[in-house]
């Protein structure tokens, strides 16, 4: 009997590689064979399906990440950056995606130096971007509960030491609730309103007004991240560091 099981086990093991590959594995295989165009269409299909089913969970960060790699290998830096940014929206602390994004960003034409920012602000922004909106939301909610608990203990505590501690916990928690709440709100407006976008066109001239006859103000290249501040018809007003101008919406892809 034991031998029969062994035989079956061996057979199953032998048959496993013959099993149909999942679309994800197929795309990975195409990538490993340097068949990047096929890999790209494979990943895009997976993401489209998930999006259509409204099931784009954190796990799909891996798909966006691989897609970004495939786009980079094809030389499409704009799409690569967009894919990495999307991967980081789902998993803000995905190290490989961060690394590759940084790497690809060094290869684009525009180098943005926002001279107005200072290190504390940068640090706070990095901290904020390291977590998802829902993380900040939950933190804010839990901290608010802590405020309430502290308040109750302060009011009805029997011992003076306990009441004193509860008082400090309550006011610190209240400050943190406000801070985390602001972070959640900022990320919410960024993600839900899709305020950030990547330039997809090789070279774009930003104009002073939302029409072709406007004066050219400055030039942006593929892969640069911009902030959309307004839209009017087919035009979007974008901001990059201290620059601000109008660009045709079709030149952009919102993250």
């Amino acid at each position: 009997m034991k031998r029969v099981y062994t035989v079956i086990a061996v057979l199953i093991a032998a048959l496993l590689p013959l099993q149909a590959q999942s679309p994800f594995e197929q795309a990975n295989t195409a990538y490993s064979q340097s068949n990047y165009a096929e890999a790209i269409s494979g990943y895009e299909q997976i993401l489209q399906d998930a999006q259509a089913r409204d099931a784009l969970t954190d796990d799909y960060a891996e798909v966006y990440y691989n897609l970004g790699n495939a786009y980079y290998k094809q030389g499409e830096l704009g799409h690569a950056i967009l894919s990495y940014e999307r991967a980081l929206r789902l998993k803000p602390r995905m190290r490989d995606a961060k690394q590759n994004l940084e790497f690809v960003e060094q290869r684009i034409t525009d180098r943005i130096d926002d001279t107005r920012s200072f290190f504390l602000q940068d640090w706070l922004i990095t901290l904020r971007n390291n977590f998802r909106e829902s993380t900040w939301t939950w933190l804010s909610i839990v901290l608010f509960w802590l405020v309430l608990a502290g308040l109750l203990l302060f009011l009805f505590g029997r011992e003076a030491a306990l009441r004193k501690a509860a008082f400090h916990v309550a006011w610190i928690s209240l400050l943190l609730t406000v801070y985390t709440g602001i972070n959640a709100g900022t990320l919410h407006s960024r993600d839900a309103a899709q305020q950030e976008a990547i330039i997809m066109q090789g070279v774009v001239n930003a104009k002073s007004s939302p029409d072709q006859s406007g004066t050219d103000l400055f030039q942006l290249h593929e892969g640069t991240k911009v902030r959309i501040t307004d839209t009017l018809g087919d035009w979007s007003e974008v901001r990059v560091a201290e620059w601000q101008g109008w660009i045709e919406t079709r030149m952009l892809e919102r993250i």
């Binding site: 409204d54 969970t57 796990d59 691989n66 939950w138 919410h188």
Partner: peptide
Amino acid sequence: ATDIRYIHSDEPQPTADGAARESVVRTG
């Protein structure tokens, strides 16, 4: 040399329809 890091092979778990919508408490 510098190059991008290689692709990942962790396949996303099959998810239920609307799983992404339900998992998030949206501000507001």
